[in-house]
């Protein structure tokens, strides 16, 4: 089930949060979004993060995604202390190691699917020819070959999210972070997207951390982390 374990070696730790707290604002207005979260994700895992709205799921994902840093505690990604990195160093870490999928797809308007998928490769400095080959391959991997020249406006929600997934995996990241990726999709499309993610996890060994509040979707994951009031309430495996 876990490719790291299947290879018979020690499961490698990819993400390690230790006593992570996030406080927005100061004094009276201080808002404790996370209160001492301990979480470890190993390579090849598929983790679902669940919990009621406002429980700190997105805050936790932003920290894992190096978009934000903890107020207190330590976050190590691949044994790098992210809190000690500068803004630009975190940008480079995201560029090299992370893939993002958002609830609202966040594709560029009036820009073809292919060009959307090429975007992270541009920031990596991949030359033009290789870039479009890689992007086309990523689109094929999400079942969208033939749709390269369609703009987001010409694609259904499910297709748009698949383009977004292609954009996230085209750089072969260490981890895919998805914050409510099925939140804007009907159940049929949601299942499609989930099957795709499961596929990447099982076949490519892609590590996935996904926020969802739908138990049906969380069921695809190997581990479910339940948040409540900024802390982990329960962890379920299987």
């Amino acid at each position: 089930m876990n490719p790291g374990a299947a290879r018979g070696s020690e499961p490698e730790t990819l993400i390690q949060l230790t006593g992570v707290s996030k406080i927005y604002g100061t004094g009276q207005a201080a808002m404790h979004a996370l209160r001492g979260v301990d979480l470890t994700v190993t390579k090849g895992e598929f983790v679902a993060v669940m919990g009621p709205s406002g429980s700190g799921k997105s805050t936790c994902m932003n920290i894992i995604g190096c978009l934000d840093t903890p107020t207190r505690g330590s976050y190590r990604f691949n044994d790098i202390e992210v809190g000690a990195l500068s803004r630009d160093q975190r940008a480079i870490l995201r560029r090299r190691c992370l893939g993002f999928v958002f609830q609202g797809f966040n594709l560029l308007n009036r820009t073809s699917a292919l060009e959307n998928v090429e975007l992270p490769l541009i920031y990596r400095g991949v030359p033009m020819g290789q870039r479009s080959r890689q992007a086309a391959a990523a689109l094929a991997a999400v079942g969208l070959s033939g749709w390269e020249n369609h703009t987001p406006g010409e694609l259904s929600g499910g297709q748009q999210q698949r383009v977004a997934i292609a954009r996230a995996i085209v750089t072969t990241p260490d981890v895919l972070l998805a914050d409510e990726p099925t939140g804007n999709l009907d159940s049929e499309r949601s299942l499609e997207v989930m099957r795709l993610l499961t596929d990447f996890n099982q076949r490519e060994g892609l590590t996935i951390v996904m926020v969802t509040h739908e138990p049906d979707m969380a069921a695809f994951a190997s581990r479910q982390i339940h948040f409540k009031d900024g802390a982990i309430e329960a962890i379920r495996t299987g």
Binding site: R87, R94, R95, F100, F102, G104, L108, L119, Y123
Partner: peptide, 16 residues
């Protein structure tokens, strides 16, 4: 703004 956020998430640095 959202596009800029997306680009930053994808790995754009300030100077990009």
């Amino acid at each position: 703004t959202r596009e800029i956020g997306t680009r930053m998430a994808i790995g754009a640095m300030e100077r990009d």
